[in-house]
């Protein structure tokens, strides 16, 4: 089981990348009592039967780990979300893409900590491939809405190879400054 909400997000975004998505939209919407995540991709998509398999921990198509008999990414997310009375939904169309959403109520004592959002983002940006990842982070407090957006292709255009240590060091500073600005705006 994962230690933080961010770890579930990494798994789910990785699913989109492995489904050969060219564009992934990742929304994080945080209010005082709720943390909602939505991931929309234009990857391979799934039939209804494949969606049923994806939520079954004891199913794997065996393409990722040959010897492994389980596929735990989405089932882990579902288990954690349901334990704290959150909700989840998967809408997928074969050949079109998948929309996955889930939320954690922040006032439930068993909700895992959110985790390090800029670290999570750095990790998903580091995955191999030319995919675009558009990240929308929204923090809602009372009546105000604080937010920032990140585009992977925009970052790549500025920094070049996102696997060179130099680029990663700068990307980390950049992502951290966005998140810190949001938190400062909140205090």
């Amino acid at each position: 089981m994962h230690a933080s909400v961010c770890d579930f997000i990494i798994d789910c975004v990785q699913n989109s990348i492995e489904a050969n998505a060219e564009e992934i939209l990742l929304f994080l919407y945080e209010s005082t009592d709720d943390f909602s995540i939505k991931i929309i991709d234009n990857g391979a998509g799934m039939t209804d039967e494949e969606v049923q398999n994806a939520v079954d921990p004891f199913y794997t198509d065996g393409s990722k780990h040959k010897e492994r008999k389980v596929g735990l990414g989405i089932p882990f997310m579902i288990q954690s979300v349901e334990q704290v009375s959150g909700k989840w939904a998967i809408n997928s169309k074969k050949g079109r893409g998948t929309e996955l959403s889930f939320n954690f109520p922040l006032n439930n004592i068993d909700t895992p900590p959110i985790g390090d959002i800029s670290g999570m983002l750095l990790q998903v940006l580091m995955f191999d491939g030319d995919f675009e990842l558009k990240f929308d982070r929204v923090l809602v407090r009372d009546s105000s809405e604080l937010k920032y957006t990140i585009s992977r292709l925009e970052l790549k255009e500025v920094l070049g190879d996102l696997n060179s240590a130099d680029s990663l060091i700068l990307a980390k500073q950049y992502l951290r400054s966005q998140e810190e600005d949001l938190i400062e705006g909140d205090s």
Partner: peptide, 11 residues
């Protein structure tokens, strides 16, 4: 840290 813009990152 102040919020960095893409232009500052480019610099």
């Amino acid at each position: 840290m102040a919020k960095m813009t893409l232009e500052e990152l480019r610099k």
